[in-house]
Design a protein around this nucleic acid. Structure first.
Lengths: 244, 244
DNA sequence: CGCATATTTGAATTCTTTCAATCAACGTGG
DNA sequence: CCACGTTGATTGAAAGAATTCAAATATGCG
């Protein structure tokens, strides 16, 4: 089962049977994107509902003078866009790694929501969780310094990836460059580099070759002021399956 | 008609007849809150759907050491919470000014969504717009300096308030203190104070006695790098009525 | 009038950025 | 297989932006 269906099913609380999702909300066309390419651009009308099947994507905004901010990371199972009736994209969606996307036909999407309210309910919950994450990011860039912010980002990723089975051995594949980390944290690559060294020296993380290991998650959560409550349903519905 | 119904009706595109909203989605109990009091706290389960009838509220987060960040401003017509199936609040909702809230019974809410899909559609759009605003805030605190950020905040408020008829004479009532502005921008009151003086010296705004006047909106939008696209439906559906 | 809250100012400190340059890793073509 | 070009990581030093702390002024409300 694809990650989107998995997440849907888990959020809906029907983990056992393979889920309502796979029966009623099927992914149509599959698309592949190369790293660092745009998937959908600011200003375009959203045409289809897209979900991440594999790889990492992001939402970002750019201003003419070059400043860029990554607003959200889209991991396998996340919904990229659509289903909201807005006229045009207010941000760009880009691939960070090689990305595989599934496209859901809007009509099928709407039909599924109407056919079974659990789907609608679950999608609504998914949107709410993304909103909660967005709020936490706002807090992260606004009120945490770079050390706390980096720590927080890595903790969030740990939990989100754990929920979809992408954590192993206390670590995970982390494809972001330091430039992209800076873009996500609202800082500069140089400073991110320095703070990363601090975190390494403190033995709070081991980051090599696009893989991040967290020796002591509780400790890292401590410096990050991390409270997983804001992505609760994301995580809790998955406990008990996370290590499967 | 109350602001919530007005916004619903406008977003739904049924401005003329008073709207689908007032018929099917009626506000039940009305509640009043004093300035600087909490309306709902982080950790509580959301019980009812609340909409702002008058006054300004906000979403905020607080960490133990005292750092606080205002994540969103809730103006008349905005939905505070609920309708998302999440187990507990991940942030606190507080009144900034004296606030009047309308409570919609969750059952009535759900019933209304099912009775007329235009309502569901419109509420979904409302949620999407709030998400877009949240993303813009993330960008605002991350990539704009305090001068640009303040300018951007005031431009956003101008457009949002204009859409609900709360702008007059090129300005609006702006109840936030400099402390609260700092809390919203991710800065400090001292710095906000100094930058406010810069903006005044540049004649970009006149701020006295909780009222903000913007002599030249285009100029302010220029320094803010403000592009109203991100709250489009919020605004566009209202053009033609804004000055009524 | 007087307390409580909000605004304003100055000066020192701290955190980040900027600019420049070096080093390392990786993939390609010769 | 190695030179070379590109991208990402790392380092140093100086400049800049924002914060902190403290104190003085206003302002508003009872």
């Amino acid at each position: 089962m694809d990650p989107f269906a998995t997440r849907l099913a888990r959020l809906a609380g029907t983990i056992s049977d393979g889920g309502i999702a796979s029966r009623r909300l099927t992914i149509g066309r599959i698309r592949h994107y190369a790293p660092r390419t745009d998937i959908a651009r600011e200003g375009e009308p959203p045409r289809v509902v897209r979900v991440v099947v594999s790889g990492w994507a992001c939402r970002y905004k750019l201003v003419p003078d070059g400043r860029r901010q990554i607003l959200a990371l889209l991991l396998p199972g996340d919904v990229c866009d659509g289903h909201d009736g807005l006229d045009e994209m207010d941000h760009t969606i880009g691939a960070l790694s090689a990305v595989v996307l599934g496209e859901v036909d809007p009509a099928a999407y709407t039909a599924a929501v109407w056919a079974d309210d659990r789907i609608g309910q679950t999608l609504r919950r998914m949107v709410s969780i993304e909103a909660a994450i967005q709020r936490e990011w706002t807090f992260n860039v606004a009120r945490r310094d770079t050390r706390e912010g980096l720590a927080h980002l890595f903790c969030e990723l740990y939990h989100r990836l754990d929920a979809i089975g992408l954590v192993d051995g206390g670590g995970y594949a982390m494809p972001l460059t330091q430039i992209e980390l800076a873009d996500a944290l609202g800082g500069t690559p140089v400073h991110v580099n320095r703070i990363l060294q601090v975190l390494r020296r403190e033995r709070l993380l081991v980051l090599t070759k696009r893989r991040l290991a967290i020796p002591d998650l509780r400790a890292l959560e401590g410096v990050a002021l991390f409270d997983p409550a804001y992505l609760h349903p994301y995580t809790t519905a998955a406990t008990g399956m996370a290590k499967s």
